[in-house]
């Protein structure tokens, strides 16, 4: 079995990404309900960037006041949506790799906790590829730096229905961090958000013989391929691909690595037109 990776280039609205996710979840639930002898649907990692969007988690559904929602919409500059995932209010937007992992927990010998750990470890593994030592703390998400100056690099939130997991992580690559200053991200008022780009400030790019590399100036022997922040689509694709590889490495039952798929191959045209009708 391989992990299917669907990367959506450019900006995808939250509602469109949710519709694709819902479709993939539905395939798993239908498979379970029918007890078919056919193999279960393959796990899919859906990676994308949204226009600026705030979402709240399940425990805040219906709990935000009109004023709070208006604040989050920022005079129409951002969208606001309620999500059924775990966790609290967070931000998704340009410069963040939002990654939804849709799979059957049982198929991969996972439970609610080990699934979240897999997501966190995959983010940490991805960051290691960019010379960043990320880690988990007692708080949700993936962090950089030590107490009391930890900075949050990625958020994690998962939804489970009949052991079918959906939602996943938001990994900040070049996202404008002031979007996070407008909210108490994940219920932790004293903590700041960060991005791979921000954490790379102070590291020295070098056009050496081996091509573009990046690393701490004091340790020239330990330099790393640079992320091309001036070419955002490429940088986002690169991070998304690395994340997919990290997830595939850790998924029990996945032995063939990552298979990149197109939107059409997992998302029939008939459904696409129905979705477009719904949205217009």
């Amino acid at each position: 079995m391989r992990l299917r990776h669907l990367h959506l280039p450019g900006l995808t609205t939250y509602l469109r990404a949710s519709a694709i996710q819902d479709h993939l979840v539905r395939l798993h639930l239908d498979h379970k309900a029918s007890h078919l002898t056919a193999p279960a649907p393959s796990p899919v990692l859906l990676t994308f960037q949204t226009p600026p969007t705030y979402t709240c988690g399940r425990r805040e559904v219906g709990a935000l006041s009109p004023e709070q929602k208006a604040h989050l919409r920022a005079d129409g500059k951002a969208e606001f949506h309620e999500a059924l995932r775990g966790g609290q209010t967070t931000f998704h937007g340009p410069g963040q790799v939002t990654a939804y992992l849709i799979l059957s927990l049982r198929e991969h010998k996972l439970n609610a906790r080990t699934h979240v750990r897999l997501l966190e470890d995959s983010v940490i593994g991805t960051c290691a590829g960019y010379w960043l030592e990320a880690h988990t703390t007692e708080n949700p998400g993936v962090w950089i730096g030590s107490s009391p100056d930890e900075r949050k690099l990625a958020s994690v939130g998962v939804h489970l229905r009949r052991h079918v997991a959906s939602h996943g992580v938001g990994l900040n690559v070049t996202v404008k961090l002031w979007w996070f200053d407008r909210i108490v991200a994940c219920g932790l008022p004293e903590k700041k958000a960060t991005s791979i780009e921000k954490e790379h400030q102070g590291m020295e790019p070098d056009n050496g013989a081996s091509g573009k590399v990046l690393g701490p100036p004091t340790m020239p022997e330990k330099r790393w391929p640079v992320l091309q922040f001036y070419d955002i689509p490429r940088a986002m694709r690169q991070v998304a691909d690395n994340l997919a590889n990290q997830v595939a490495l850790r998924l029990s039952g996945v032995d063939g690595g990552v298979e990149n798929v197109t939107e059409k191959s997992i998302w029939p045209g008939e459904l696409q037109s129905r979705l477009i009708e719904k949205m217009t």
């Binding site: 399940r58 059924l84 775990g86 699934h115 979240v116 939130g157 998962v158 489970l160 229905r161």
Partner: peptide, 16 residues
Amino acid sequence: DSMGAVESVKSASDIL
């Protein structure tokens, strides 16, 4: 049917 949910720190599980 989903009739509610139990949420741990990072994941919300439907109760059927």
